[in-house]
């Protein structure tokens, strides 16, 4: 597997703070991977993304993006490879219409108008929002707004997309649409996805989960291995997945397999038990 981001011995302390926000952290992120970074408020998740995007500069250590060690001279090149989708879609709209909004990043890059129109259409088609292109972004639902925000990021053709709590303000349907879309785009466009979240259920589609606590990586594994921590996840400010909570209630009297089951697997098990009665 090819590394797209390589972080080595990274340290960062906020000015006027005594405690480091990131402590000697090393992490490799691979091309086309979907990596979730989870942890409670203050664990260092957002600091880490700011460091990756060059919004703040590390006290020590290195970040390599696509083979280049990031420094002051090449940070703008590196940043072009990265798109960020934020938590609150209302905070990221600047255009009066959906298409204006998607065009914003391209205008900033000085793209000629002809090309820009094509690019905006392409991006809106990718997120299935073409029918909405002349609408006022404020008239859209939360999930639709986040799809437009994703189109804005896709238009600039990044290799890496960072989702910073991007679905935490959406209802369950909106969340599912956005996550499924990101999954599909990852495969189609060969993107690397880094999602930052404290919602364990937002991590279901990722291939790897890294748990941060006090600026350090405390767990790094496949989703099933992380979910298997069950109620121990609370130590890191995270909630136990719904299915494992339910299983521990049912297990008191019924036989269920050991280890983590997804909700779908648990349903199958329960149906089986029910039909064997």
């Amino acid at each position: 597997m090819e590394k797209i981001i390589s972080i080595e011995n990274l340290n960062y302390t906020y000015p006027e703070s005594k405690k480091p926000a990131i402590k000697d952290l090393s992490l490799d992120i691979y091309k086309n991977e979907w990596l979730s970074i989870v942890g409670k408020n203050g664990s260092g998740k957002s600091t880490l993304t700011k460091l990756i995007d060059g919004l703040i500069e590390a006290s020590s250590g290195t970040i390599t993006i696509a083979g280049q060690v990031i420094n002051e001279e090449n940070i703008w090149d590196a940043r072009k490879r990265i798109g960020i989708i934020f938590q609150n879609p209302d905070h990221q709209f600047v255009g009066a219409t959906v298409e204006d909004d998607v065009a914003f990043g391209l205008e900033n890059q000085g793209m000629p108008r002809e090309d820009m129109i094509k690019e905006v259409d392409r991006a809106l088609a990718l997120v299935k929002m073409s029918d909405f292109k002349t609408r006022d972004p404020q008239s859209l639902s939360g999930g639709q707004k986040q799809r437009v925000a994703i189109a804005g990021v896709l238009a600039t053709k990044p290799q890496i997309i960072i989702m910073d709590e991007s679905t935490s303000m959406l209802d369950p349907d909106g969340r599912k649409t956005v996550l499924d879309l990101v999954q599909q785009l990852r495969k189609q466009q060969d993107l690397t996805i880094i999602s930052i979240t404290h919602d364990i259920e937002e991590t279901e589609l990722s291939q790897r989960i890294v748990v941060l606590n006090d600026g350090q990586i405390v767990k790094d594994g496949k989703p099933v291995d992380i979910y298997d921590l069950g109620s121990n996840l609370r130590k890191y400010g995270l909630e136990e997945p719904f299915s494992s909570k339910l299983m521990s209630i049912i297990r008191v009297t019924e036989k269920l397999p050991e280890g983590y089951l997804s909700e779908e697997e648990l349903k199958q098990q329960l149906w089986k038990l029910h039909s064997n009665m």
Partner: peptide
């Protein structure tokens, strides 16, 4: 709630 759900599932499985 999850407690109600768990309790009902157990009852139904116990017949």
């Amino acid at each position: 709630t999850i407690n109600e759900l768990g309790t009902e599932i157990k009852q139904q499985l116990n017949g």
